[in-house]
Simulated assay, not measured.
Amino acid sequence: MPIQTVDYSAHDAPQRFVQSLRDTGFAVLRNHPLPQALIERIYARWLDFFNGDDKAPYRFDPKTQAGWFPPDVSETAKGHALKDLKEYYHVYTWGPIPESLKEDALAYHAEASHFAATLLSWIEAALPAEIAAKLSQPLSTMITDSPFTLLRVLRYPPLTGDEPAGALRAAAHEDINLITVLPAATGPGLEVKPRGGDWTPVPFESGALVINVGDMLQEATGGYLPSTPHRVLNPVGEFASQSRISLPLFLHPRGEVVLSERHTANSYLEERLRELGVKK
Rank of each mutant, 00 (worst) to 15 (best):
S113G: 13
D72Q: 14
A66L: 09
S113Y: 09
L106S: 01
V18C: 13
A105N: 03
Y88V: 12
I97E: 00
T64F: 09
R30L: 12
T93K: 08
W68S: 05
L82K: 15
A37W: 01
D84Y: 03
A27R: 06
P98D: 10
Y58E: 03
D7F: 10
A66D: 13
E111I: 15
V73R: 11
L47I: 02
A13N: 06
E87D: 07
Q36A: 14
Y108I: 05
G95I: 06
Q65Y: 14
E103P: 00
H32T: 11
D84L: 11
Q19I: 04
Y88K: 12
L106M: 05
P98H: 06
E99S: 14
V91R: 01
Q36P: 08
G95W: 08
R30T: 15
T76W: 02
V6P: 00
P14M: 10
A110D: 13
R59G: 10
A112G: 09
G52Q: 06
V28G: 11
V6Q: 03
E87Y: 02
P70E: 04
Q19F: 05
A44S: 06
P62F: 13
L82V: 15
S113V: 12
Y92G: 04
L82Q: 15
F69A: 07
R16P: 02
H80R: 13
P62Q: 01
H80V: 09
L106D: 03
T64L: 04
S9D: 07
R22Q: 11
F17H: 03
E99R: 10
D23F: 07
T64G: 05
K86V: 03
L34D: 11
S100K: 04
H80D: 07
D104G: 02
A10R: 08
H90P: 12
A27C: 11
S74P: 04
L21G: 01
G95Q: 08
P33K: 13
D54W: 01
R16W: 04
R16L: 12
W46G: 10
D12I: 14
S20A: 07
L34I: 09
D72P: 00
H11K: 13
H114N: 15
I39K: 07
F17I: 06
E75V: 13
T93Y: 05
W94N: 06
